[in-house]
Simulated assay, not measured.
Amino acid sequence: MTDADLAARLVREAGTLALRMRGDGIDADTKASISDVVTAADHAAERLVVDTLAGERPDDGVLGEEGASRDGTSGRTWVIDPVDGTYNFVAGLDWWCSALALTDGDDLLLGAVHHPATGRTFVGGPDLEPRVDGVPLAPIVDRPLAESCLTTYLHPPFYGDEVGAAFGRMANGAATVRMLGSGTMDAMAVAEGRLHVLCQHSVPPWDELPGAAIIRGVGGHVATVRAAGKDWHVAGVPTAVAEVVALLSGGAPPAP
C-alpha cells in the first residue's frame, strides 16, 4: 500500500470512529482554555492511527496532538490530528475533520484530510497531485488580498494587545474574513478555491502540516512570519500570502 493510500485510509477510519462516538454521546474536557477541548473520541481516533502505523510503518515515527510520540529509525514522521476542530465537533457543528501529514526530515511529503460530514477525503502534497476522492484538484487561482476571503482565528484575550494590532493590520487588508473553527478544514477550502488565504499564530505542526501539504500541491504558497512576538502561519494564494506577510511585519503590502 502506498503512503498516500495508507494516509487516506487512516484519516477515513479515524474520522468515522470519531463521528460514531459523537453519535453515542461524549463528554469534553478543557485543555488550555474553554474553547480548547478534548474528548474520548480524540484519544480513541489517535490511538487507532498510531496502532495501525505500528503495523504498517513500524520504522516511522509518530507525533500526535493528544500525546502520541514515537521516534522512528527511517527519518520519517507521521503527524496526527485525530479531530481538528474539536469545539465544533463537541458543539454538533460539521466543520471538523481528521488529518495527518507525513514528513521526511525537513521535507513535507503529503497531507491527508477526511471530512466526516460529507464523507470526502483529500490527499496530496508538494510533489503529489492533490485529489479529493480520487478526483484531481484544480490549480489554485492567484488574487490579491483585497479580493480574498481570509480565514483566521484569534482568541479574544489577544485583541487589545500587540498581537491584536498585528492581526488588525492583516485582517483589514482582506475583502472579507471568516472564523470557522478548524484550521485544516479552512486549508481544504483554500485548496479548493472556496476561501483564499489563511493566517493564524502559534500553529502546532498537526494543525499546520496536513493543510500546508495540500495547498502547496495545488500551487499555493506557505510562509511563517514573526510578528508581535508570535510566529504566524500563512498559506494560500501567492499574492495574498505575500501581502499578509508584509502587513504582519508592519510594512506596506508589495506593489502589484
Rank of each mutant, 00 (worst) to 15 (best):
E66C: 12
G250E: 02
L100D: 00
V135D: 11
N172Y: 05
G181Q: 09
A40Y: 10
K230E: 11
R131G: 03
G251V: 03
V197T: 06
G67K: 07
L198I: 10
P156W: 12
V50W: 11
M1D: 07
T30D: 14
A7G: 03
G23H: 13
L48E: 09
S69N: 14
G124T: 09
E56R: 14
T176R: 14
P58E: 02
T86R: 11
V38N: 15
H196L: 01
G211E: 12
R76T: 12
W232C: 13
V190N: 02
A68G: 15
A187L: 04
A212M: 11
P156T: 15
G111L: 04
V38D: 14
A112D: 05
P205T: 12
R178K: 12
L108G: 10
K230S: 08
A174G: 10
P204E: 11
L209G: 03
E208H: 06
R76N: 04
V197A: 04
E65T: 07
L108F: 04
V141L: 06
L110M: 11
D3M: 00
T152S: 15
A213M: 06
G183D: 08
H221K: 13
T103C: 11
A45D: 03
D133G: 08
H155S: 15
I214R: 11
D107E: 12
Y159N: 05
D133S: 08
V245K: 09
E129Q: 08
V245W: 01
A44M: 14
L195C: 02
A138V: 02
E65M: 05
A246E: 13
P156V: 15
V163R: 09
E147N: 04
T121K: 06
F167N: 07
D3Y: 00
P156Q: 14
G160H: 07
R70Q: 14
L198C: 05
I34M: 15
R22F: 13
P144F: 03
P139D: 13
V123T: 00
R169M: 02
L180C: 07
R169C: 01
R120C: 00
A112I: 03
F122L: 06
D207R: 04
W232F: 15
C149W: 02
A44G: 14
V245Q: 03
T239P: 03
D231K: 13
G85Q: 13
G64M: 12
D127W: 06
F89V: 07
